[in-house]
Design a protein around this nucleic acid. Structure first.
Lengths: 346, 346
DNA sequence: GTGAAAGCGCTAACAT
DNA sequence: ATGTTAGCGCTTTCAC
């Protein structure tokens, strides 16, 4: 009796593999692989056979294995504060759509405006050996930055631009937004602005807009006023805050909001109380969200050019993909600017 | 000159690997692996050494390799029509957050309400050998269904419930939503409802609500009226559609919208034209979006229990993960229901 | 143009 | 409790 060593138990994860296709098409696996990646380099006859085999077996390639073997994963990770926030969800879906054209998969993570959560998201993202990693904003935990600097992954920070990014940044200065909006409001004749913000301790960019606003007022000798709430921005919060503003600062003649969502709540509440906007009080928002143009009154706001941000992020990713470790990825800061959109609320 | 055969080019993808950690800690790679997966099975002394080595090298494990080796990927794919839609983005972020607790990564894809796009997303998703795949709705292309039936991946369809899902479904009947909303409107004394919908040919669920609405009216002998627009739902669209409704159906006494977003636009436009809601005309929406409760008037709408949907989806995924191919995954349909939220717009 | 062979970084069965 | 070893499914030289 031959002593058969018992066959190692087969842990099978995938029903039909490239090897199965190769067998059926009577070619080698590497030919199938070639056909899948560079069809033009395979002869028509064999192409036909492989195609038939793939169809017949309903074969779906395994990217996990592919990524491991090629050392070049087709994954890009994006970390945003919140996908529920219209700014970020639209940026993300644009980036996603563009990269999908290149056969790149986009992983999205929410940090819920927490730097600690961001840190673990980045760690998870790195575990996927991404081709690039996109973060929101320039402020990150020390550990996050260390993790990122230690490796060669291209890092793109978006929605904020300032001199020293980890690698590249695409966005604009939120301080400048606050500054210019304050000047805009003053130019319209208002003199007692109140900045209304939500969750400013966590929403770093909104805090910068508040700071820019304050700086502009101080430059003109006006004392800046801030009303802040720890809750997340919402229309409901806007309703509540109108109360607080009017109570705490009855002299207020214009409310500068950190978000259109809050401004919308203020419009609603003002309507309910018969407070005329812009008669009794002026109003501005941020984000140029869809409803801002159509509401009554239409809200003066800031267009953050999120399409442009998405476009530049995609361009940077493609650039990095092309260079693929050839030349060193240079640091780059792209300022996509912003525009103040003047409407009836002022 | 010695003729050196050039060393096989090293394509290095990762700077520091488990082998490096093992070397530094003076243990075998499998011990490091064990420490990472089941720390309790490694002696304290060695644990300490491994931990130090990991810290020192700033090691991040490679999930791609791990997934390939273990045949059990920690990935779940979700396909939604649009992340810009507040319903789906909140469901997705809830599922994401819950699964993150279990160390599972969530991949999100948008099909932009297209079944063809969905098909390619599902194909891409399968390429990641996901632990489960979550789709939105019950209608999919023939090829999508075939791909899914052919393999063993657990499939969960959400936001819609009906008898024969691919495997499991979590949601509610949109037909019933339309039906009950119509009856609710009639019970309030309205007699000439117009259903206003956006992109009904692609938004299958909205179309079902329209059908349910029509069915209820017909049952009461009232001729159903539909105003439809091929564009995506937006407040701007709502503004435009009020015009059309009033022009084409001057007898209309209530507008039943396929979405709160459209209803909001109608509120805005009605305000502009001094058309009283609910005086001259009643209004209802769908989705119970945040602004619906605070706008003037507050919008009567439908709460889709998206939290409950997310919760049940997560529960199903966990169940499947636990069973892990042990017992066959049985088909299951969970009706999470919905509630009509009566507010001032009616 | 096609195939053989050597891994990518990790896990898991098995042996110690 | 720790180490040895054989792959997971694919890509990529390199030889033919």
């Amino acid at each position: 009796m031959a002593e058969l060593k018992p066959a190692r138990r087969r842990r099978k994860m995938q029903s039909v593999t490239m090897a199965d296709v190769a067998r059926l098409a009577a070619v080698s696996p590497s030919t199938v692989s070639l056909y899948l990646r560079k069809p033009s380099e395979v002869s028509p006859a064999i192409s036909e056979r492989v195609r038939t085999a793939i169809d017949q077996l309903n074969y779906v390639p395994n990217f996990v294995a592919g990524g491991l073997a090629s050392a070049g994963s087709r994954v890009v990770s994006i970390v945003v504060p919140s996908v529920r926030n219209a700014f970020f969800s639209s940026t993300v879906s644009q980036i996603e759509a563009a990269l999908a054209q290149d056969g790149i998969l986009t992983l999205v993570g929410n940090n819920e405006y927490s730097l600690e959560v961001e840190e673990s998201l980045v760690r998870a993202a790195l575990s996927w050996a991404p081709a690039a990693i996109v973060l929101t904003g320039l402020k990150h935990s020390h550990a996050t930055i260390r993790m990122l600097r230690d490796r060669t992954v291209p890092v793109i920070e978006m929605w904020e631009a300032a001199p020293e990014p980890i690698m590249s940044a695409v966005g604009f200065s939120h301080h400048k937004v606050g500054f210019e909006m304050a000047n805009h409001v003053l130019s319209k004749g208002y003199r007692r602005p109140v900045f209304v913000g939500a969750r400013l301790s966590r929403d770093v960019r909104a805090a910068q807009r508040a700071a820019g606003h304050a700086a502009a007022l101080e430059a003109r000798g006006i004392r800046p006023t801030l009303v802040e709430d720890p809750r997340a921005a919402s229309t409901r919060l806007g309703c509540d805050l109108l109360d607080r503003v009017l109570g705490e600062h009855p002299e207020c003649d214009v409310i500068v909001c950190s978000s259109d969502v809050i401004a919308l709540g203020i419009v609603f509440e003002a309507g309910r109380r018969n407070i005329s906007i812009p008669g009794r009080i002026g109003l501005t928002g941020f984000g140029n969200l869809e409803f801002s143009a159509t509401c009554n009154p239409a809200i003066t706001t800031v267009e953050p050019n999120s399409d442009r941000i998405a476009g530049e992020v995609v361009a940077l990713i493609r650039e990095n993909l092309a260079e693929k470790g050839t030349s060193p990825v240079r640091s780059k800061v792209i300022d996509t600017g912003f525009q103040i959109i003047a409407r009836d609320s002022l």
